[in-house]
């Protein structure tokens, strides 16, 4: 996807919300559509300077994770997307995070328009919900049960009645 522009750059600098700077290879940065768009915009203007992209919504520890993901996926960018090794890596990558980190990562992926990471995070959260009981879901995700006991019983019995 290299731009044909004469002023194409190989690296960009990304700044996290807590003001840490990350030097990122352009191929890695292109995994994020937000960064890619910034780079493309700058290249259209024909600048030769190093581009600094501030991300006001992403802290440096989350940004590190996103960039780790982008780096791995940039390596496989030319391969088939269904690469088994990459899928395995994705799973191991997400497995180690707690729910709060996973949430921040999901939001960062959304903000930085890294669609594959966003899909991955959403699917991971969905899969973890799948294996939980109702009680566990309420506990882990801190959701208040706002049903009255009667309402809850009614929903449990919804297959007992035709019309209601």
């Amino acid at each position: 996807m290299a731009s044909s522009s004469s002023s194409s750059l190989s690296r960009v600098v990304v700044k996290s919300s807590d003001n840490n700077l990350f030097v990122v290879n352009k191929k890695v940065a292109s995994q994020s559509q937000l960064l890619k768009q910034c780079i493309d915009n700058m290249e259209e203007k024909g600048t030769n300077d190093v581009i600094l992209i501030p991300l006001s919504n992403v802290t440096s520890n989350i940004l590190t994770l996103v960039l780790e993901y982008c780096e791995k996926h940039a390596d496989f960018a030319d391969d088939d997307n269904n690469n088994q090794e990459l899928k395995q890596w994705d799973h191991e990558f997400l497995k180690k995070f707690d729910y709060a980190t996973l949430n921040s990562l999901t939001m960062a992926a959304d903000y930085m328009v890294t669609k594959s990471l966003l899909n991955l995070c959403c699917q991971f959260i969905a899969d973890s919900i799948k294996d939980l009981t109702v009680q566990q879901i309420r506990q882990i995700f801190d959701i208040k049960n706002d049903f009255t006991p009667q309402e809850e019983a009614d929903i449990k019995n919804e297959n007992a009645w035709a019309f209601r």
Partner: peptide, 17 residues
């Protein structure tokens, strides 16, 4: 996230809140 939960679990999800 929630739309990706398989259909077989939807009855359970309806009971959460």
């Amino acid at each position: 996230c929630l739309i990706r939960v398989p259909r077989v679990e939807h009855r359970k999800l309806r009971l959460v809140c």
